[in-house]
Design a protein around this nucleic acid. Sequence first.
DNA 1: GTGAAAGCGCTAACAG
DNA 2: CTGTTAGCGCTTTCAC
Lengths: 335, 335
Amino acid sequence: MQMPVQRRTTIKDVAEAAGVGVATVSRVLSGGSASAETREKVLAAAARLDYHPSALGRNLRQRRTGGVGLLVPDITDSFYARLADGVLSCARSYGEPVTIGVTGDDPERESEMIGTLIEQSMDRVIAVPSGDGDAWDPVLRAGVNVVFASRRAEPDVPDVPAVLADDRGGVRTAVEYLTGLGHRKIAFLARRGQSQRVAAFTGALKALGVPVEDELVVHARASRDSAYAAAAGLLQRRPDVTAVLTGGNILGEAAVLAARELDVRVPRDVSLIMFDDVPWAELCSPPLTVIAQPAQDIGYRAAELVLRQGRRPRTVMLPSELVVRASCGPRRPRQ
Amino acid sequence: MQMPVQRRTTIKDVAEAAGVGVATVSRVLSGGSASAETREKVLAAAARLDYHPSALGRNLRQRRTGGVGLLVPDITDSFYARLADGVLSCARSYGEPVTIGVTGDDPERESEMIGTLIEQSMDRVIAVPSGDGDAWDPVLRAGVNVVFASRRAEPDVPDVPAVLADDRGGVRTAVEYLTGLGHRKIAFLARRGQSQRVAAFTGALKALGVPVEDELVVHARASRDSAYAAAAGLLQRRPDVTAVLTGGNILGEAAVLAARELDVRVPRDVSLIMFDDVPWAELCSPPLTVIAQPAQDIGYRAAELVLRQGRRPRTVMLPSELVVRASCGPRRPRQ
DNA sequence: GTGAAAGCGCTAACAG
DNA sequence: CTGTTAGCGCTTTCAC
């Protein structure tokens, strides 16, 4: 049994039904000039036939795809989900569809997705770049409008605006808070590619006269497993560490889990600050002190930047904020 | 200063460069038959010119859009994020882009998004339907391939396959577990539209000979605020309730928060079971007992259904599982 | 103010 | 095996 597929109503059908030319229909429907009478007829016919203009035809003609592409490392990560939500929400108000791609923070996969996007003639892309800034070169030359969100590419791509949270400020505040509690052996659990935050971290330590140990900066890949391994490894290897700062909420989750597993008490044995606020930070035991970032705003602003044609500001910096809850305490040597 | 936008390389350019006709290029690139020599020339020319076929042209010609549309209530909800991740992951293996829309569980917004999708000529859609089954009628008649994920529409739309988790089984197991612990006053915090689960809930109670009180089924809207209000309201209004089952993780979050705020201890004063397992359920204090659903699988399977052309099974049911942690205890009257 | 016609980039007939 | 041709549905000159 075959589903009775009805042929799509086209602009031509409407033109015939209204007794006018196709050009007129097009004009009326896109707000061009037409006599009141004609407009009336066209609108009536369109409504009667339940006509929906085909984005395909329009886009082909205009050599561009409506809609925006969005590339995030992991949609399962609450931070990126909120960022995506911001993008979606802004795009909706422009009536633009958004096509999403997950890069897994893998430069190769990222290029692959970029390929798909330009194949779709997407001419506006928001990305949390995972990889090689060079990968963006062909895209830019193809005239695609790119905005980076949450981080820049490395090496940096000039001419691409970005919407960022103030990592530096966040890290500095956190480190000051921790040193204020007496901590000296502070570790940083980072995701690969968070060199920005790592730099801010070591910079903050130096500024406060705390010696920097390279070994206390630990890198993990994007996956939960890798995060857990990194966290557990750190806690076991360095019992002298009394405070940990994590570069993201997946890493924070891993740190809490690892600490619990290894019977390291938070905040008694080690203080913990996590990058990015998530709903569960408050439900956690103990409730986690975090560096909150306006994930949703970042997405929204990035979408605005890419959707609003006209002059484009170079870069937008949004504030981070230290939200103190109960995962930090005064330094008490663990061993 | 104007960005030097280079005109897109078209199939015609490649044809000229290779000294063949456009049809030949098309054939070679889509795996049709051609002499080894010609194929060579075409491929070389394509590579040299960095040619990427335009999906726009192809789709217009073929009267369909590659790619699949995905409609979820809230991408910020970890369950739907994981579902989306499953879809994305499957789609990627088919090389299909996915366009995502957030419905906010609002039928009106859902219709709006459906409109956008058919305007894009999307001919394959995966949806967690929020509303009116009737809204899907025009879509189906337009020949769009729809698969529902995680729930069906109401009133149900025939001919639309669905990938579901076994709600019924999950609820029954949970209720049995709770009654086994001695609980009789069990409340169900539901999102609007979860009539399936509510029915399973009351059904399970009846089967166990526990009297059903309508007032113990509380409905909330999709937002966190509404969820919190519902949870807090229930806990205050009915101090005789000793166990709560929540229809989703946002509601679970709200219940934990409300209980904490109202100084109701879990599981001492009230036992709590949440629908859907999320990473933070384990980090919560106490760790939450949950009905786990294979969110990612649901998405993946739904994508498979919609992408694999050919015979389409009616419906797929995936198992739910009760994961016992520490949020339930024996009944102890609260007042 | 309105219609006819020319494509946008591609594929599928249809000839050769 | 390959080239020519006719559109897919739409917008946009360009005449009238």
